[in-house]
Design a protein around this nucleic acid. Structure first.
Lengths: 330, 330
DNA sequence: CTGAAAGCGCTTACAG
DNA sequence: CTGAAAGCGCTTACAG
């Protein structure tokens, strides 16, 4: 049988109220009594029941985190950031994979709410109007991680993907590249849209244009990159740079190019997006833009905890900095 | 104000008991009454409070997962496996990073117990006798993931690392390799020990011996691999194969070798361990042994849930299969 | 088929 | 400084 507060109280010859006070470090307890209780706790091996406590105080000290796929390195760093901050503030996290599925997202959210998470971090590649509405009406506090709320009444921490893509494209133009191909996400989404926009802007400013046929959609992973590069090369078009939406896509793309005897970067430059640890260990090293995924998670978590603890109800948007990392692939 | 069961009861003109019954799908409710309640639930937007429910029924339907570092690809797959099974059985998971720190492990475990996790999956690189004892006495059900309980009274799902290393070494010997170097984990641990043992066994059987000076300890990541290879090459010893403890180490090692003009595999073979997705996208592709990390997580979760739901108290050990994957680096 | 009531293990005003 | 008691939101024997 698990030992509960009343067992400790008996052992120490005090009331449960007193035990509760020492467990929660409420000061107005006599030192001697406190000692006695502490001893009883040790002796009985008492561990407070956080569920009972939560029910009473109406807070769980847990954050829910909705994430498309924890095993996707894009998200895993964010999760780690959330975790670390939670550790500091004594929160726990309930993890929920949503697999980019709207249905799973709804289910996940319901469960997280039912489990009374004080706050929820929503991470996804996009935010539909419908889900935005659902989140807005959720009883828990909400922060969006790397997703923009176009309507602007939810808090979020993000990256200016458009401007990052713009900077990277501009750098490419400065290096003399003129004929761009762009490998986009076949499923669309916020990030993909912004990157496309940023690249187009840079090209426009340089009086260059993007051949719409060279906007090649595909899966956002190595295999996808491999396939998109093959498609590009099959097109026979004159291209001197392929920009991708992440480093893994770039890796696959480079591989496909080299298999066909196209040298990167000499014959064709390739860029990644969202620096990944492996990108500097690969040959050629991938030129990319480094996004602070860990920080996004950490900042989102800190913000959310603040929201849970204060009654700070205004929604904020924090934009994190990025950094162009020039290596070898461009 | 959140709506609770009593609000629904009022709305539907029934007792809370009846509402509870329809929420929990207990059959003995009149169809009409049920309809009325369902409508009231919809109208009020009622969501059951899982915390209150848990307190009453003494089960939380949540599993705790202790994991050294979620952002380490070695563990992230296991977490995904756990997650997926939990999704099927309607469990949630509370995630806890332990960073290989015994203190954090103890803290984590306490918190998971206090939050009344029905079961806990312990993942780590080692299990000390002290912690084994603590786990054994925990009130929650416990399953070990990829950690062996030498004393054998805890359930676990693991991989026969020794035999995997043995097989890989044997394959190397068959290919004519004679002078082995081994890059081990500077922090020791179960996996490292077993691999060492397996390699030695294979060498012994072939009347070869392992030069103790060529057992090089280091950090288990790319940089560590890079450093260990440099150390190996600095030694000036005659070596024709370096076996590592994971693919990332192998990647770093290969890089270091090539920077010094040592061609892999022609001048020196390198093997990884625990196949990682990138290993076949890298040049040279890494020869390794594929360990079913996802399955370990999934099997551990299923086992744990069974233990939580039945009163199946015998401890079991499940050993998962592995597979040698020959690619280019050996 | 339905409801009144006890109880899950805590916390916290309130009274002393 | 300490304790008795109410109550957090549910579930579930028990009685009808």
């Amino acid at each position: 049988m698990k030992v509960k507060i009343v067992d400790v109280a008996k052992e120490a010859n005090v009331s449960v109220a007193t035990v509760s006070r020492v467990v929660n470090n409420i000061p107005l307890v006599n030192e001697e009594t406190k000692e006695r209780v502490l001893e009883a706790i040790k002796k009985t091996g008492y561990k407070p029941n956080a569920i009972a406590r939560s029910l009473k105080i109406q807070r769980t000290n847990t954050l829910g985190i909705m994430i498309p796929d924890i095993s996707n390195p894009l998200y895993t760093e964010m999760a780690r950031g959330v975790e670390d901050i939670c550790g500091i503030y004594n929160y726990n996290i309930i993890l929920s994979n949503t697999d980019f599925s709207p249905d799973k997202e709804k289910e996940s959210l319901d469960v997280l709410i039912e489990k009374q998470c004080d706050g929820i971090i929503y991470i996804g590649k996009d935010l539909t109007d419908e889900f935005q509405e659902i989140l807005k009406n959720a009883p828990s506090e909400i922060v969006l991680g790397n997703v923009m709320d176009e309507r602007g009444d939810l808090s979020s921490v993000l990256i200016d993907n458009e401007s990052a893509a713009y900077d990277l494209a501009k750098r490419a133009i400065e290096k003399g590249h003129k004929n761009f191909a762009l490998f986009t996400d076949r499923d669309g989404g916020f990030t993909s849209d912004k990157i496309l926009k940023g690249v187009k802007k840079a090209l426009n400013e340089a009086d260059l244009s993007l051949d719409e046929e060279l906007i090649i959609p595909g899966n956002i992973n190595v295999k996808g990159g491999y396939a998109m590069m093959n498609k590009l090369l099959d097109s026979g078009k004159d291209v001197d740079i392929a920009m991708t939406m992440n480093d893994q896509v770039a890796l696959g793309a480079i591989r496909a190019a080299e298999e066909r005897g196209v040298k990167v970067p000499d014959d064709l430059a390739v860029t990644g997006f969202n620096d990944y640890w492996l990108s500097e260990w690969v040959n050629p090293e991938i030129t990319t833009v480094k996004l602070p995924m860990y920080d996004i998670g950490a900042i989102a978590a800190r913000m959310l905890i603040k929201m849970c603890e204060a009654d700070e109800k205004e929604s904020k948007t924090i934009t994190c900095p990025y950094e162009i990392v020039e290596r070898q692939s461009m």
